[in-house]
Write a protein that binds this DNA or RNA. Structure first.
Length: 478
DNA sequence: CGGTGGGACGATAGCGTCCCACCGGTGCTCTATT
């Protein structure tokens, strides 16, 4: 049994820190007690340490399931910089002979990074099932709930994979998950006894604002005003690639700022360059779709503006959470024109096969692969033995959920009460707000008159205060 | 799914109506051609 002193010693010896950040110790205790653990810790809480530290104490390989190839490569590079050589990204970027080599030498790796799609392949699953695993890590675990059902269905097979790997200790990591999402993650993985380590989603240094704009022209004008006013680094989120690119050009022409558009239509090499330049302060503003953000490790993003309507409060909290990681004052501004919610709904509507479409399919009027964009997700469910009736019911349920999420987002926009209070209540943390009302509802005057943000003290990461290691050492040795 | 913009058409000289095409985000992996 590993005690706290041992964990702390390992932290000192291998990472050079003197204290854990909030949530780390509780998570590590749980992992070392071989408990499945869901850690919901805000961005910047040091989540990678949660599996890198146990690597020094556990025997066997650590598998990390990650949603993006770029994230896996990034993690691999970081581990190599730490001197870890026994690390591999098992992905389609390997040549066939490289992949065969990896699969026949699985035991020689300390860390294996893998996507859910690759992990669900029979040869990979069987290969890994023969290994001694120290830990299974599911990074960005909210993807199970958010992307799994409609977009990347292999996420729904992770429960099966966990069982076929002999149920290793499983660590799920995410920055944002409401209680409902957390329940959904555990349920979809069929994990019943899960330790949850949850820190507040509140980021007191982020000012919350909603600006109503009556037209798209007014919105663009307002955006320009905000971007000129705010200090350098910022991210602007869009739900359209085309408009993201157009506004990027507009801002580049109207200001002296260095602006780039970032979305899935941009070549991956350029996306990589843009991200690097943003990190190195060679770009000021990124006009992005939801493609941008995961794994962004930049601590001085001063603002996140939403030009379009986020699909849910959860995604909104995730996206604005990228601001102000250094604890200094930052802002999250949502620009809203009445009717903006329609685009969010339409995006969901095309993702889910309509009832009419499914009826046509059931009457054999169309084949599954003729269902266009919906074909992939639909054939997945059919291949896994779902009856069409069940699929229709499920998609209807997903559609209703999407509508509820849009309604919740609208309620956030419209509420006259403190935005922060609304947000925290929605995430099951009522009454946990800081004494200061730091949002546009409370600071109407300051916000609307001259955009002067109230000054607050930068927050430092507090030392884990529920553990006095010196006292604990005295108890152990004297 | 649902909103919008453009073209055709009708009945009549300036505009209404209808219909159709188009648009709207996120990524993995595999496979067959260039």
């Amino acid at each position: 049994m590993v005690n706290d002193a041992k964990l702390l010693a390992t932290l000192r010896q291998h990472f050079g820190f003197n204290a854990f950040r909030p949530g780390q110790l509780a998570t590590l205790r749980s992992i070392m007690a071989q408990q499945d653990t869901l850690a919901i810790l805000p961005t910047g809480a040091g989540k990678t340490l949660l599996y890198q530290l146990p690597a020094y104490l556990l025997k066997g390989t650590i598998i990390v399931v990650s949603p993006l190839l770029s994230l896996m490569q990034d993690q691999e590079n970081r581990l190599r910089l730490r001197g870890e050589k026994r690390v591999v990204v098992l992905s389609s970027l390997l040549t066939m002979s490289e992949r065969i080599h990896v699969l026949t030498h699985l035991n020689s790796y300390h860390y294996i990074f893998v996507s859910p799609e690759m992990l669900a392949r029979q040869d990979v699953e069987e290969g890994l099932a023969r290994m001694k695993l120290a830990l299974l890590v599911i990074d960005e675990a909210h993807c199970i709930s958010q992307w799994g059902p409609d977009f990347r269905p292999e996420y729904l097979l992770l429960g099966r994979v966990i069982r076929s790997l002999g149920h290793p200790t499983t660590l799920m990591l995410t920055a944002t998950a409401s209680r409902r999402v957390a329940d959904d993650i555990c349920q979809k993985l069929s994990l019943t006894h899960v330790t949850r380590v949850v820190r507040s989603i509140d980021r007191p240094n982020i000012f919350l604002a909603v600006e109503q704009c009556d037209s798209q022209d007014e919105k663009q004008g307002q955006l320009l005003r905000l971007v000129k006013k705010f200090d350098r680094s910022g991210v602007i989120y869009f739900s359209s690639r085309k408009i993201a690119s157009e506004v990027a050009n507009f801002l580049a022409n109207q200001t002296k700022l260095r602006v780039a558009a970032y979305h899935a239509g941009v070549a991956s090499i350029d996306r990589y360059r843009i991200q690097q330049q943003f990190m190195q302060e060679k770009l000021d503003v990124i006009c992005a779709t939801s493609a941008f953000g995961m794994g962004i490790d930049k601590n001085n993003i001063r603002y996140v503006i939403h030009y379009h309507f986020p699909p849910s409060l959860t995604s909104y909290v995730q996206e604005i959470g990228r601001a102000g990681r250094d604890g200094k004052q930052s802002a999250a501004v949502l620009l809203y024109s009445p009717g903006d919610e329609q685009l969010a709904l339409n995006l969901k509507a095309v993702e889910l096969p309509s009832v009419a479409m499914m009826n046509a399919y059931r009457k054999h009027q169309v084949a599954a692969n003729a269902l266009g964009r919906n074909a992939t997700i639909l054939t997945f469910y059919l291949d896994h033995g779902w009856q069409p009736e069940r699929i229709v019911a499920y998609f209807q349920q997903r559609w209703q959920l999407a509508q509820r999420q849009v309604q919740e987002m609208l309620a956030y926009i419209r509420t006259g009460q403190c935005k922060r209070e609304f947000m925290l209540t929605a995430f099951g943390e009522p009454g946990k707000k800081q004494p200061v009302n730091w949002c546009c509802s409370a600071d109407q005057k300051a916000w609307q008159e001259d955009l002067v943000l109230p000054v607050i003290q930068p927050t430092r990461f507090p030392v884990e205060n529920d553990f006095d290691w010196q006292k604990r050492l005295r108890q152990l040795f004297f």
